[in-house]
């Protein structure tokens, strides 16, 4: 068996008396889509935050591609291969779609610290920026200001920016939240198309999408894993049914 992309070992995190992450271990294998589900407040986003480096765990280890990243800052983890979309669209709102692509492209090339040539008219950057947008089919909206985009398109753009760094692990925090059925379908198609090229850890409340997309699922309740397995195993699991699927929601 090949080495996991992401390996979480005995992760703990508390906010005062609330245990947000409780002795949690989890692996994400290369190329798989791994869904993280659980009721609201289960600690899914907090877990993503710790993997991403925006919040520090109290104890435990995080390894990416076999090397420990526990001490790295967010930008360093991104350089090590983590891409991320956020629960609330996190794009550059004051710029056009193309300018978002260009800024991502120059960051990818490590050229952001140059002072002379204008960035937005640079042919090489425009070409690269366009390629970034094409991965999610947004190249036709290139001249649009992001503030004028529909919600679903903003989510696509965010996914494109997350993919721009060629990550080996993609953290997607509710990519379909708030999107209409059409946009959700498009997003699911795009994520489906990524299967095998990048490992994905997916938080999503749309269970149809989760069961369609996920190779494996991990179910979290109150910061702890209560079950893990394939879609079939999870839907047959009594504990999960009780706690989540058939339960309160």
């Amino acid at each position: 068996m090949s080495q996991p992309i992401l390996n979480l070992l005995n992760l703990n995190k508390s906010f005062g008396a609330v245990k947000a992450t409780s002795d949690l271990s989890l692996t994400v294998m290369p190329g798989e889509i791994h869904a993280l589900i659980g009721p609201n407040g289960a600690g899914k986003t907090t877990l993503i935050q710790q993997i991403y480096g925006a919040q520090k765990q109290d104890s435990g280890q995080i390894s990416l591609n076999g090397s420990e990243i526990t001490a790295l800052s967010v930008p360093d983890r991104v350089k090590a291969g983590i891409g991320r979309s956020f629960q609330i669209s996190n794009v550059l709102m004051d710029f056009t779609v193309m300018e978002n692509g260009i800024i991502a492209e120059q960051a990818r090339l490590g050229q952001s610290f140059r002072f002379l040539r204008p960035a937005f008219s640079d042919r090489q950057l425009i070409r690269g920026g366009k390629a970034i947008l094409e991965r999610v089919g947004l190249e036709k909206r290139a001249e649009q200001r992001v503030g004028d985009l529909a919600h679903g398109e903003r989510r696509m753009l965010e996914l494109a920016l997350a993919l721009a760094t060629s990550p080996s692990l993609l953290l997607l925090d509710e990519p379909m939240a708030g999107a209409g059925p059409e946009d959700s379908q498009r997003m699911a198609d795009i994520i489906e198309g990524l299967r095998g090229t990048v490992a994905i850890l997916l938080i999503e409340h749309d269970m149809d999408a989760v069961f369609r997309l996920a190779d494996r699922l991990t179910v979290m309740v109150e910061g702890a894993v209560i079950a893990a397995g394939t879609a079939a195993e999870i839907s047959a699991n009594e504990a999960v049914k009780l706690a989540y699927l058939g339960g309160e929601e």
Binding site: V78, F86, D94, L116, F120
Partner: peptide
């Protein structure tokens, strides 16, 4: 320049710039 647009992008959304590494 590339530096200048990055600076403006930081004003717009610092966390996205971090997410770009």
């Amino acid at each position: 320049s590339r530096f200048g647009v990055t600076l403006r992008a930081i004003k717009s959304n610092e966390s996205r710039i971090e997410a770009m590494g």
